[in-house]
Design a protein around this nucleic acid. Structure first.
Lengths: 250, 250
DNA sequence: TAGTGGTCTAGACCACCCT
DNA sequence: GGGTGGTCTAGACCACTAA
């Protein structure tokens, strides 16, 4: 086909949605397959040529869709090898979502000790944060995270029971996002963190082994899935005596 | 020319630098012109076609270079109008580098009151942060920033005198990055922030009008120019009673 | 050596903006 | 209407990887 590029433009315009590029449509279709688990994490997608033939577009259009997905950290592209579904292994999470760094620049991933796991009806704050219906059930996890022998973070997580059924009865691993992907097919694609400085309350201080009132970072994180649905609410209280939160802005 | 795409690849390979794409070379050349002030902020660059003809590459290659620069916030592209040198006006800085947001979600830019300006020889910490030579001179600025009538941030800035000659004798505006660009041709392209929770010291507490020891965020920011040279070191102590630091991660 | 993604080109048409 | 960036295609060659 040497025909001009008309494609679906007309259809999109007729729908009253002011034009959606073909590559964006291709991206949407590929993301749909990712969400549906057509390809497992770490597995290679078909080659650009194959996808192009199958979807009826040019290789260049598939490429632009895949490049966009790579920019969103949904796939990883490797020259000479292929395009792979992104994995949620420890390393990736550490660099992507875990922003606490040693003052000497060292990036170590903390160990976790679960303090409690419980199932309950969501309270008002949880419903608000996770956009839940009235009477929705949630799982609450409280844990202490340490670098080596030094306690540094105490955090409370709240998760919708509908998205993570049976979680409260499971063993809780250190790397939660890996568990979400593996057992529940949920990929955390982005997070929004609100950070404040607070004085540690008596309970947190005791758990962390510091005097009550010690200054700490309170990080309020909402994690969103690929479809931008809230899947986890996490409030972390972090000591920053020997660590800091690193934020690089462009 | 219907000739294949050979271009400078050979030359780059011969230099022992394992291959640098043409579009990256084009990007470098265009950035060089930006730095040299060939086009002023807010001014349009020549069209893709003109640049392509001038640089002896295809329009597509220029496009990829410009897209990369747009991703780095160095230029702004507007369909139907042209490609413009990014401006450092208040709005852009607010959304790009200023991460303090009201708890109600409101983004307001604080007013500043300069407490002191001085010129001095850089101390060890300043030399280290800004990568300065021994005996280098710096300008120090200390200022209080308030939202409305409420003091919220007290910060100390250190700037190399070689990059900002005569700054200590100038009027200090609220929007510093605009001043850097306008009067010194320095564009802040990225920042690295290290955040800790601290108890306010007596001096900062008095300036902010809170009891000494009140928890606050200490934000240690290093600002880099387009050429990745350190141009400003800023330590801010922020109250977060009614504000928070917002960090969105993908 | 074959297959993959990465780069580069050339040309067409589309959406948008200004005059 | 004429110019700009944005999309799409088609085809060629380059760089990298693995068998």
């Amino acid at each position: 086909m040497t025909a001009p590029a008309t494609t679906e433009t007309g259809a999109a315009a007729e729908e009253g949605l002011g034009f959606r590029p073909l590559y964006a449509q291709v991206r949407d279709r590929l993301i749909r397959r990712l969400v549906d688990g057509v390809w497992a994490p770490g597995e290679p997608l078909p080659s650009e040529m194959q996808l192009a033939a199958e979807l009826g577009v040019s290789q260049g259009t598939v490429r632009k869709a895949l490049d966009a997905m790579a920019a969103e950290n949904l796939v990883v592209r490797r020259q000479g090898r292929g395009t792979f579904v992104a994995r949620h292994d420890e390393e990736r999470i550490m660099f992507q979502f875990f922003k606490l760094v040693g003052d000497d620049g060292a990036r170590t991933f903390p160990q976790s000790r679960v303090l409690s796991v419980s199932a309950a009806r969501a309270n008002a704050g949880e419903r608000d944060a996770l956009k839940l219906e009235r009477d929705a059930k949630v799982v609450r996890i409280r844990r202490l995270r340490s670098f080596g022998e030094t306690p540094a973070i105490v955090e409370t997580l709240t998760l919708p029971e509908t998205i993570f059924p049976g979680l409260s009865a499971m063993e809780i691993p250190n790397n939660l996002y890996g568990l979400y992907a593996m057992h529940f097919g949920v990929t955390v694609a982005s997070t929004r963190e609100r950070i404040k400085a607070v004085a540690t309350c008596a309970q947190d201080a005791e758990t962390l082994g510091v005097p009550a009132g010690t200054p700490a970072l309170k990080i309020d994180r909402l994690a969103l899935s690929i479809e931008r649905q809230p899947v986890e609410w996490r409030v972390s209280v972090c000591l920053t005596e020997r660590f800091h939160y690193l934020s690089e802005l462009r």
